[in-house]
Simulated assay, not measured.
Amino acid sequence: MIRTSIRRAIVPGIAVLALALTGCGADNEDDSNTGAGSGGGESSTTSNLSGDLSGGGASTQQAAMGAWAVGFQDANSGVTVNYDPIGSGGGRENFISGAFPFAGSDAYLTDDEGELTKAQDQCGGTVIEVPDYVSPIAIAFNVPGLDELNLSPETLAGIMSGAITTWDDAAIAKDNPDADLPSERINAVHRSDESGTTENFTDYLDAVAGDVWTAGVVETWPSDFGGEGAKGTSGVVQTVTNSEYSIGYADASQTGDLGQANIKVGEEYVAPSAEAAAKILEVSPEADVATDTQLVFDLDHKTQESGVYPIVLTSYFLACGSYDDAATADLVKAFAEYILSDEGQQQAAAEAGSAPLSADLASKAQDIVAQIGG
Rank of each mutant, 00 (worst) to 15 (best):
Asp224Tyr: 13
Gln254Ile: 11
Ser223Ala: 15
Thr239Gly: 03
Thr202Trp: 02
Thr233Ser: 08
Gln238Thr: 14
Ala250Gln: 13
Asp224Met: 11
Ala209Cys: 12
Val218Gly: 05
Gly235Gln: 05
Gly210Thr: 14
Phe201Asp: 01
Tyr245Cys: 08
Gly256Pro: 04
Gly196Trp: 03
Gly196Asn: 08
Val217Gln: 10
Val212Met: 11
Asp206Ala: 15
Tyr249Trp: 12
Ala209Asn: 09
Val218Gln: 12
Val218His: 11
Glu194Tyr: 08
Leu205Val: 11
Gln254Leu: 10
Tyr249Met: 15
Tyr204Phe: 11
Asn200Ser: 14
Gly248Met: 07
Asn200Gln: 14
Ser234Ile: 00
Thr197Val: 12
Val237Lys: 09
Leu205Lys: 12
Thr197Lys: 02
Ser253Cys: 06
Thr202Glu: 05
Ala215His: 13
Glu199Ile: 03
Val217Arg: 14
Ser223Gly: 06
Val217Leu: 01
Asp224Glu: 15
Glu228Gly: 11
Gly226Tyr: 00
Glu194Lys: 10
Thr233Asn: 12
Gln238Val: 04
Gly226Gln: 07
Ala252Asp: 05
Ala215Met: 13
Thr220Phe: 00
Thr241His: 00
Gly227Asp: 04
Gly196Ala: 09
Phe201Leu: 13
Ser223Asp: 15
Phe201Gln: 02
Glu219Gln: 13
Ser234Trp: 06
Ser234Tyr: 04
Val212Glu: 13
Glu194Pro: 09
Val212Trp: 00
Thr214Lys: 15
Pro222Asp: 14
Thr202Cys: 01
Val237His: 01
Thr241Lys: 07
Tyr249Glu: 10
Ser223Phe: 08
Phe225Trp: 13
Leu205Tyr: 00
Tyr249Val: 12
Tyr245Pro: 05
Thr220Gly: 07
Glu219Trp: 03
Gly232Arg: 06
Lys231Pro: 04
Val212Ser: 12
Thr198Leu: 10
Ala230Val: 05
Glu199Ser: 02
Ser234Pro: 02
Ala230Ile: 08
Val217Lys: 07
Asp251Gln: 02
Gly256Phe: 05
Gly235Asn: 09
Val208Tyr: 05
Lys231Cys: 04
Gly216Val: 13
Glu199Asp: 10
Gly227Tyr: 03
Glu194His: 10
Gln238Tyr: 01
Asn242Thr: 08
Asp211Ser: 15
Val236Glu: 07
Glu199Tyr: 10
Pro222Lys: 14
Trp221Arg: 12
Gln238Ser: 15
Leu205His: 01
Thr214Val: 13
Ala215Gln: 14
